[in-house]
Deep mutational scan, measured.
Amino acid sequence: EEEKYTVIYPYTARDQDEMNLERGAVVEVIQKNLEGWWKIRYQGKEGWAPASYLKKNSG
């Protein structure tokens, strides 16, 4: 089951394993960790993003 989330704040990656996020983008969360960083898939790429910048899509 894919978990789709919408980006609610833009984010600029500060590290090579982080993802740039555009507000309104829909991403797939593939791994959650306890530090508040989630691994996401977006446009065929995978990387880490701050969970607080993502909002779960309803339905």
Rank of each mutant, 00 (worst) to 15 (best):
E1Q: 00
E1V: 05
E1W: 04
E1G: 07
E2Q: 05
E2K: 08
E2M: 15
E2V: 07
E2A: 10
E3L: 11
K4P: 07
K4S: 14
K4R: 13
Y5V: 04
Y5H: 06
Y5Q: 01
Y5E: 00
T6F: 09
T6K: 13
T6M: 11
T6R: 12
T6Q: 12
T6W: 04
V7D: 01
V7W: 01
V7Q: 00
V7G: 00
V7R: 01
V7A: 14
V7F: 03
I8H: 08
I8C: 12
I8D: 10
I8S: 13
I8E: 09
I8R: 11
Y9D: 15
P10L: 01
P10V: 02
Y11W: 09
Y11F: 14
Y11G: 02
Y11R: 14
Y11D: 02
T12F: 07
T12N: 12
T12V: 10
T12W: 14
T12D: 12
T12P: 06
T12S: 11
A13D: 05
A13Q: 07
R14E: 13
R14G: 11
R14W: 05
R14I: 06
R14N: 08
R14F: 03
R14Y: 03
R14C: 12
D15Q: 14
D15Y: 04
D15I: 07
D15N: 14
D15F: 04
Q16W: 07
Q16C: 08
Q16E: 07
Q16M: 09
D17S: 14
D17W: 06
D17E: 09
D17C: 10
E18H: 14
E18D: 06
E18C: 05
E18V: 07
E18W: 03
M19N: 03
M19F: 06
M19E: 01
M19L: 11
N20L: 04
N20E: 11
N20C: 07
L21Q: 00
L21N: 00
L21V: 07
L21E: 00
L21I: 06
E22D: 08
E22F: 06
E22S: 11
E22R: 10
E22A: 14
E22I: 09
R23D: 13
R23Y: 06
R23G: 11
R23M: 10
G24S: 03
G24A: 03
G24L: 02
A25W: 08
A25C: 06
A25Y: 04
A25D: 12
A25Q: 03
A25M: 13
A25K: 04
V26S: 06
V26P: 03
V26R: 05
V26K: 03
V27T: 01
V27F: 00
V27C: 06
V27N: 00
E28Y: 08
E28D: 13
E28P: 01
E28I: 07
V29F: 01
V29E: 00
V29M: 01
V29I: 07
I30F: 05
I30L: 10
I30G: 02
I30V: 15
I30H: 03
I30N: 02
Q31M: 06
Q31H: 09
K32P: 04
K32S: 10
K32Q: 03
K32M: 05
N33G: 15
N33V: 08
N33A: 10
N33Y: 07
N33W: 04
N33T: 12
L34R: 15
L34T: 14
L34P: 15
L34H: 15
L34S: 15
L34G: 15
L34K: 11
E35S: 14
E35M: 08
E35W: 05
E35D: 14
E35K: 15
E35R: 13
E35I: 12
E35N: 14
E35P: 14
E35V: 12
G36Q: 15
G36Y: 11
G36L: 05
G36W: 05
G36C: 07
G36S: 10
W37V: 15
W37G: 06
W37A: 00
W37H: 03
W38Q: 01
W38R: 14
W38G: 02
W38C: 03
I40R: 00
I40H: 01
I40W: 01
R41W: 06
R41P: 00
R41V: 05
R41H: 14
R41L: 05
Y42V: 10
Q43W: 02
Q43P: 00
Q43M: 09
G44L: 02
G44E: 02
G44A: 04
G44C: 14
G44M: 01
G44N: 04
K45G: 06
K45M: 15
K45V: 14
K45N: 14
K45I: 08
K45Q: 10
E46I: 06
E46W: 03
E46H: 08
E46Y: 07
G47I: 07
W48N: 09
W48Y: 13
W48T: 08
W48R: 10
W48E: 03
W48H: 07
A49K: 00
A49S: 03
A49E: 00
A49M: 13
P50H: 06
P50Q: 05
P50M: 02
P50S: 03
P50F: 01
P50Y: 02
P50T: 01
P50R: 12
P50L: 02
A51F: 04
A51M: 09
A51Q: 09
A51T: 09
A51D: 05
S52V: 05
S52Y: 04
S52P: 04
S52T: 10
S52A: 10
Y53G: 11
Y53A: 15
Y53E: 02
Y53N: 14
Y53S: 15
L54G: 00
L54I: 04
L54D: 00
L54S: 00
L54A: 00
K55I: 07
K55W: 04
K55G: 09
K56Y: 03
K56M: 13
K56E: 10
K56I: 08
K56A: 11
K56L: 12
K56S: 11
N57M: 08
N57L: 09
N57H: 11
N57C: 10
S58D: 12
S58A: 05
S58E: 02
S58Y: 10
G59M: 10
G59W: 08
G59S: 11
G59N: 12
G59I: 05
G59H: 13
G59F: 05
